[in-house]
Computed example of a mutant assay.
Amino acid sequence: MKNLLVFILLSLPLLLEAQSGNTKPVKLPKPNKVWVFLLAGQSNMAGRGIVEAQDALTDPRIFSINSKGEVILAKEPLHFYEPSRVGLDCGLSFGKTLLKGVPKKVSILLLPTAVGGSSMRQWLGDSTYREVKLWSNFLEKVAIGKKYGQIKGILWHQGESDANERSIPPGQTH
């Protein structure tokens, strides 16, 4: 327990720095050299894991955006829609793994849109959930992605909000 407390106290400055938006805006390479991936879904994609020091290390070829929509070097936590619940997600590790197999001239832009606890029905209906209009926000990030590069994929991690009988519309089956 003592080690966990020490770990949390040492990690706190990293979390506070990431939340405060102190990461400086940067300039991206030309759009034909930027692969864009949208990160969507709920809590596991939005990030709930403990952010460790190595998670805050940046790579000069992996970018994201801050809450103001400015392009920054990507570091965890990527998502910023739930400031009191930020944490480690799978986006940056995906980007780092992908870089190992793409041409050296390619950079990656990760665009966060996930909001913890949101259901598929809320996304499709463009509901406002935790002060985020889900589908509209996603489309805004698609527009940002098209501006800065080529959209290559969507990483969607959905879970518990759609994993029970109550979430299935009447008359439908699994």
Rank of each mutant, 00 (worst) to 15 (best):
K96Y: 10
K100W: 04
G69S: 06
L39W: 05
G171C: 06
G117N: 01
Q42N: 13
M120Q: 11
D89G: 15
A114C: 11
A74I: 04
F37A: 05
L5W: 14
R61W: 01
L88F: 14
E160A: 14
E131L: 06
Q150T: 15
F80K: 01
D59C: 09
G116H: 11
I108P: 07
S107H: 11
L4F: 15
A56S: 13
G87A: 08
N164S: 06
V132C: 02
E17S: 12
I72S: 07
W123T: 12
L28M: 07
Q172M: 12
R130P: 02
L139W: 03
P77R: 01
S11M: 14
I151E: 02
K75G: 12
V36E: 07
S11D: 14
K33S: 06
V34S: 05
E160R: 06
L155Q: 10
A40N: 10
S43G: 14
L134A: 02
L28W: 03
F138R: 07
L12Y: 14
Y148V: 01
A56I: 05
I144Y: 01
V86T: 15
H157S: 11
Y148F: 12
N44H: 01
G47I: 04
E140I: 09
N32W: 07
W35N: 11
F7T: 15
G116M: 01
E70M: 05
N22W: 08
V132L: 05
P83W: 15
E76H: 08
E82Y: 02
I151R: 13
D89R: 12
Q54D: 08
L109P: 00
Q172A: 08
E76Q: 13
W135K: 12
P60M: 03
L109C: 00
A46D: 02
G21V: 11
L155G: 09
D89Y: 06
H79N: 10
K27N: 07
D89V: 08
I144Q: 10
S64L: 00
G95D: 10
L73I: 01
N66F: 11
E140D: 13
T128D: 03
P60D: 14
N44E: 00
I154S: 10
L139D: 03
Q54L: 11
S127A: 13
L88T: 12
A40T: 14
S119H: 02
R85I: 05
L16R: 09
L109I: 05
H174D: 03
I151P: 02
S67L: 10
W35R: 10
G116I: 05
I108L: 14
Q122K: 09
P170T: 02
Q19K: 15
L38F: 04
S161G: 13
